[in-house]
Amino acid sequence: MNDQTRTQIETTVKNNKVVLFMKGNRSFPQCGFSATVISILNQLGPKYETVNVLAEPAIREGIKEFSQWPTIPQLYVDGEFVGGCDIIKTLHASGELAKLLGAEAQKVEPPKLTLTPSAARAFEAAAADAGSHVLRIEANAQFQYDLLFADKLPGDLIVTSQGRAIHVAPESARRLDGTVIDFIEGPDGSGFKITNPNEPVKVKPLTPKALKAMLDAGDKVELFDVRTPEEHAIASLAGARLLDQPAQTYLLGLDRSTPIVFHCHHGGRSQAAAEHFLKQGFKTVYNLEGGLDAWSQTVDPSVPRY
C-alpha cells in the first residue's frame, strides 16, 4: 500500500463515523457478505458511508493491510475496525452493534398504520393460531408487501390499531406511513387489501366484470381502444373510442385525474398504452385484463371473437 492509499483510508475512517468498505454500493451490493452487512445497517438505521472497493483496486488491497483483515466487507465505527460480516452478524444478534452505533442510530418514527374493523377481526381469528408470533407488515423498495404472523425482531417499531399491535422493521417504516389495511370478502374469495399513499402510481388491472360494474354505475371513465381500425371494425366494445390521432389529442387535453381505461384484443398492447399515458401524468389508468376477448367471454357474448 502506498502513502496516498493509506492517507485516503485514514481520512475516510476519520471523517465518517460509520463507514463500510464493501463490494458494490448500498443499493446494489455485489457480494452476499456485503449485502448481509448492508441489511443489518439498514435495520439499525445509522447514517453511514460506503466505499465500493470494486471501483478502487488500490483501496481493495490497501484496506486489507490497513485493518490486518483479509476479507471484504469491513466496518469502521469511530475510526475503529469493528469486523467483517461474521462479526457484524454476531454483534447484531447480541445487541452490541446497536449499542456501538448508539447515538448515531437514527431514530425512525413509527409509521401511522390503520386497520379497518374487518381487518382487525380477520387478524383476531388468525392470531389464535399464531402462538408467540406477532403481526408484521413490511414493504420492500419495490413496494411488495409482506403481511404475516412472524417472530419479533430487535429494533421493531410497534404500532397499535384497533387494539392490535403491528410490528414493522425500521427500514419499512417510512414506506408504510399512512397505510390502511382492509379485509375484503367478496364472491371471488376474501383477502387483505393494502392501500398505501406512498406507493408509486401504477397501471391498475381491471377485470371485464369490474369494468361492466363501473359502466353500469355510470362512473365517469374514458374508454379507449388501442387496436387497429380494422380490428375495431370487426368487433368493438360499446363506448370505447378508437385511439386514433384526434382521440389522442382529445385524451391529452383531459384533466389528469380523469379515470382512463385502455383495451385491446388480449390486454398486451393496451398495457403498453396505459403505461405510456401514466407517464403523461394521468393518475388513474386502468388496463382491461384479457382485452376484448375476455370481455366477450365473460360479459357480452354478442361481441364477436376473432
Binding site: 490486518q68 483483515w69 483479509p70 469486523g83 461474521d86 462479526i87
Partner: peptide, 10 residues
Amino acid sequence: MVASQRLVYS
C-alpha cells in the same frame, strides 16, 4: 473477537 480472528486470519 476481532483480535482472536486476526490471529487465525494471519
